[in-house]
Design a protein around this nucleic acid. Structure first.
Lengths: 250, 250
DNA sequence: TTCCATATTTGGTCTGACCAGATTGCCGCA
DNA sequence: TGCGGCAATCTGGTCAGACCAAATATGGAA
């Protein structure tokens, strides 16, 4: 795996050593999840290095999502989130030579989500159903706000992913999610009637999942995505290459 | 999207400002891909901040995969790789509460590799075929070395992913790849006869892709994975929760 | 016991310095 | 003129010590 991008021959820096030790302590639970690490000054003393080096190590671990540094408070052990994955993925997508088109995106969704719907129908628990139902209700209630609706829509599909009882699906979906959104999948969903149509599809999917009708769920999801693709392609301005890199808000 | 993990209320630090400017310059091409950024000292002067701050910004961008810092040489603009994504994904997987099992992994592969095989059969170019063939030949030639064989095997599936003509598939596959490997999918592939069996499946898949037989390719891949799952489950020691975090080589 | 002022701690930033390897450029030899 | 090699220079890595302002902890007053 790609370590800290240290070419095999390179001399591991002092900071790398600190990073390694800290990482071990974190995964070993010496520094429990949510707990605060010793202050930079204390660690510098303990490791016998300068504060600058400790600082570099902490920053690296923060970038990797293992720590959260709160200004004037301390560094806290953080549970990894899908955010890191999707950030990296988004960045990758935005710089892919042959840019990712709407068609590509829908194709991938088609592959994953159709099967996800089927698995969800087979395995969903009562709690899963409750969450899916809530998301469904939200899409109906928030149909007037493009932003809120998009969020609810994503949540609906996310709940479906979780209902597959396979955490990998949820992880993958979450990772792609920001890409989906960022790439203004909304292209077509800015129209109220599009959102209304989506609701009807969602309803069908939900019913199938609820009754444990895997084949029906797959079929409904498949048709939903076919329909969505058509709508999006119609309103798309073309390829989505210039993925809007998030702009700093300063 | 999750910025630099800056809570909305937080005061953006000086370093954050520098990060933002540098990032813009990189994406805008002011600092071209592969080129070297000014030295830390020069930038510190230009931005009117201390070298420590510049350093922090550079480290952050390195962690995000935008830069590669070479000791005593400089910081170079780097093309993003799937490595970042898979690192993050691997970390995420290794810390998921309900640990990821072999069954989960194969299920995900089943979902998208089957479809990938089909798409590859429909769209593969002559060049794609050549690469797939080469990987196939490698798996046969390297059948005696577990390590080399695993690499070639992964390459075979990777070439298939690229042949779908949808870059997202290749990206996703590459991102999952290290997870697949790390999680010692090899559990069953350490046996020579397993590798021999895999070769026969690969051959069938290759033939179907070569003749443009999408349905056949899907079927062959499906059966290949079913077979692989059975083998792996038989030799698996159980769930793979303690995902081997890569150990520092020091 | 409650609450607020004060003292302490903590991360963020700055300055200035040294090290050792990478880079560059110049000089002398062929 | 061409080129190999040595030395000055440059660069990132690390260290030391200091100041700031906000977050926290402390202790005493109400």
């Amino acid at each position: 795996m790609s370590r800290t991008a240290n070419p095999p021959g390179a001399i591991p820096s002092v900071a790398d050593g600190v990073i390694e030790v800290l990482r071990e302590r974190i995964t070993a639970g010496v520094y429990a999840l949510g707990s605060r690490l010793p202050s930079e000054r204390d660690m510098a003393q303990e490791f016998g290095v300068s504060r600058a080096t400790i600082r570099q190590a902490i920053l690296a671990l923060e970038a990797r999502g293992l720590l959260e540094v709160r200004d004037r408070s301390g560094a806290y052990v953080q549970a990894p989130t899908t955010g890191r994955v999707s950030d990296a993925l988004l960045q990758l997508i935005s710089q892919t030579p042959r840019s990712i088109t709407i068609r590509d995106l829908v194709e991938v969704r088609m592959v994953f989500e159709v099967e996800m719907a089927g698995l969800a129908a087979e395995r969903r628990t009562r709690e899963d159903l409750r969450q899916i139902a809530r998301a469904l209700a939200d899409t109906a209630a928030l149909v007037d706000s493009v932003e809120d609706w998009a969020e609810a829509d994503v949540e609906f599909h996310g709940a479906l992913a979780r209902a597959t009882a396979n955490p990998l699906f949820a992880i993958i979906y979450d990772s792609l999610r920001s890409a989906f959104i960022e790439q203004r999948m909304r292209t077509g969903t800015t129209l109220p009637e599009t959102r209304a149509a989506a609701f009807r599809w969602h309803q069908r999917i939900f019913d199938a999942v609820g009754t444990g009708d895997a084949a029906g769920a797959r079929r409904a999801m498949h048709e939903h995505l076919l329909d969505a693709r058509q709508t999006m392609l119609r309103y798309a301005t073309g390829d989505i290459d210039g993925v809007s890199q998030p702009q700093g808000s300063t």
